[in-house]
Write a protein that binds this DNA or RNA. Structure first.
Lengths: 228, 228
DNA sequence: ACCTGAACACCGTTCAAGT
DNA sequence: ACCTGAACACCGTTCAAGT
């Protein structure tokens, strides 16, 4: 009786793709991309490195699955009850925020083939572009532009986070921006005239607001596109 | 006399940062990112791995320098003698084409910190945005949006090239697109309704044209932006 | 000042052997 | 069917020793 009802100990739950991906995400979040190692992962799952290969074909698939799991979580379940524009903003911000909490997604999104994670975002963007009333032949272009912009910002944010972490780990966000702005202001006056000029705006700017402004720019472009 | 004028043999030119970066680019172009190894690089330069570290701090810097060298080569030397819109298109296409010939740049751009290569593109984009007559407070946003879009497409193209290379090396471009379109058409009809619908356009689409259409979309957005 | 190359401390992945 | 963990074939990076 007793043996029949006892719970198996947490550490001895059978290995599964889900548990592996879950542990990989944890590792990525806590120790970064470099910390995700088959040996570290195996230790966390109290097993050997080889065992993981029974459930996952290799590191690339593991990274892809981890990214997909996180991105899937940010996608809305049902249809939006707002304007398409607002739905697109919410969608974009969802990805943006996911990258902020899991910076490693930023790289992974950019390098994942046209497969799962990107496709999810593309699909949801496309639906809203459709709801926007864009002509069919233009929907592909519009959804792609939005997706590429989002992925581009994501990659950049991830790179910034990495640089921030690697070079000035214990410095605050504002201090980090101050340093970057100071570096811009120090650039060659003729070769980097424009960049120097906007250095001040870099200091003041808010990543999130700036990201949304870019989204709105594209939305405006979609609304005013020249028929062709 | 003879000894004085003889050329030193190519293989025995002294090591230099430039030669190292040049060899790294060659390696990246021919054997890909995975082929760039300090051992392979050392062999090509007929020296030991350790020697490289005298001129370069590590692999990250080397990749950054290689990317910067290529990107710098695509930037225009003087002011453009066309409309700002056209100059932006040329600029964007320059980066696009550079990524097509050197796919590894795609990743590298996305992961290079706000440093050199990105800054070059940002500067040139900014100047044209300025020439476009965008209000100062908006120039930063506009240039950033263009840059992020370009980098996003670049990363995606690089990922595609990698996937194409890894999975179907000896298949043509059109066949590759056909396969992707077929995969899209096979997606779940309710979960991926939009993506299935545009699968046909994926087959017909031209990356370059599509890329430019996205640029034009953002340019339209810049032209029609709501004052605020 | 610059180069050499063995050595260190890791990796991802495989695979015979176990259960 | 699934797990184990030693072993293989690599990496990037360091560093004493050379010139």
């Amino acid at each position: 009786m007793a043996t029949r009802t006892r719970r198996t100990e947490r550490r001895e739950e059978p290995l599964s793709r889900e548990r592996i991906v879950e542990a990989a995400i944890e590792l990525l979040d806590t120790v970064g991309e470099r910390g995700l190692t088959f040996r570290a992962l195996a230790e966390r799952l109290t097993t050997g490195p080889g065992a993981i290969y029974w459930h996952v074909t290799g590191k690339d698939e593991l990274l892809g699955a981890a990214t997909d799991a996180v991105v899937a979580g940010t996608m809305p379940a049902g249809p939006a009850d707002t304007t398409p524009q607002e739905a697109i903003r919410v969608l974009a911000l969802g990805v943006f925020d996911a990258i902020e909490t899991h910076p490693w997604i930023g790289n992974q999104l950019a390098r994942s083939p046209g497969k799962s994670p990107m496709l999810r975002v593309f699909e949801h963007l496309g639906r809203q572009v459709q709801a926007l009333g864009a002509p069919p032949a233009f929907q592909f272009t519009a959804a792609s532009a939005l997706l590429n912009y989002i992925v581009g910002v994501g990659g950049q944010n991830a790179a910034d986070a990495r640089a921030h972490q690697a070079r000035t780990p214990d410095t605050g966000r504002t201090e980090f921006l101050d340093n970057a702005a100071a570096a811009w202001a120090d650039l060659d006056p003729v070769e980097y005239a424009f960049t120097r000029g906007v250095a001040g705006q870099l200091r003041e700017h808010d990543d999130r607001t700036e990201f949304l402004a870019g989204i709105d720019l594209i939305l405006t472009g979609i609304a005013h596109r020249q028929p062709g």
